[in-house]
Simulated assay, not measured.
Amino acid sequence: MNIDEDTSAWLGCPTPLEMYKHQCAMLEDELTTAYQLLKKARANIAGLVQMNDLLATEKAAAESQLRSVSADLSRVHVQGSEMSKQIMSLKIIASQNEHLHIENQRLLLELSVLRGPRS
């Protein structure tokens, strides 16, 4: 047996040039796929940037509205406190009025008892 004999052609093994061409074709396919993915990613990024801009604008508007509503709420709270003070004052006056009315009725009853029956 002669071991030095070239047997690569016997089994249909590719030549080094065929292997390089095949490797180049595979790299070209990978680059094409990578380019398509990169293009899609860039489009996604552009869409995300637009969404971010829109959200930032809406956030600024919502914050402005929140400040306005907070100011209104604070003003209404102050007015409510003032009205509560007035209501408490009126309740005190009403209580005093009721007390004076009861006292007046009691005094009228005592006076009518002291004067006696009217003829």
Results as ranks from 00 to 15, higher is better:
Y35I: 03
T15W: 02
S8T: 11
P16T: 06
K91S: 01
L111H: 09
A56C: 09
L55H: 07
N44L: 02
G47N: 02
I102S: 06
L37D: 15
S112I: 01
S95L: 01
R115H: 02
T33C: 05
T32M: 06
A43V: 07
L54D: 14
P14K: 04
L17A: 13
R106H: 12
L114D: 06
G116S: 07
K40Q: 13
V78M: 04
V69C: 09
R67L: 12
L100S: 08
K85D: 03
E110A: 07
D29P: 00
K91N: 05
Y20A: 15
M51A: 14
L66I: 08
E18C: 10
A60K: 12
P14L: 03
M88G: 01
L37W: 06
S70I: 06
Q86Y: 10
L54K: 12
V49N: 14
L37A: 13
E82M: 09
L55S: 09
L111E: 04
Q86S: 01
R115G: 05
E110V: 11
V76R: 06
M51D: 12
M26D: 07
G116P: 00
L11M: 11
Y20Q: 15
E103W: 13
R42Y: 10
K59S: 08
S64V: 03
L108G: 02
L66P: 00
T15L: 02
N97P: 00
R115P: 00
E58S: 10
C24T: 15
L73D: 14
P14V: 02
S8P: 00
P14G: 11
M51H: 09
K85W: 07
A34E: 04
D4N: 14
E28P: 01
E28Y: 01
G116D: 05
E28M: 05
L66W: 14
L111K: 04
L54Q: 14
S8E: 12
S112R: 15
E58P: 03
L90K: 05
N2D: 15
W10D: 06
L48T: 07
E110S: 08
P117T: 07
N104A: 03
E103I: 00
P117C: 14
Y20K: 09
D53C: 10
V49D: 13
A9S: 13
L48F: 15
K85M: 05
A43C: 03
H99V: 04
A34D: 09
S74Q: 15
S95W: 00
I3G: 00
L31S: 06
W10R: 01
A41H: 04
M83G: 00
A25T: 11
L108F: 04
K39P: 00
E63D: 13
T7K: 07
M88E: 10
V49P: 01
G12E: 03
D4L: 07
V69L: 06
H99I: 02
R42I: 08
Q23P: 01
L108A: 12
L38Y: 08
E18K: 11
R42G: 10
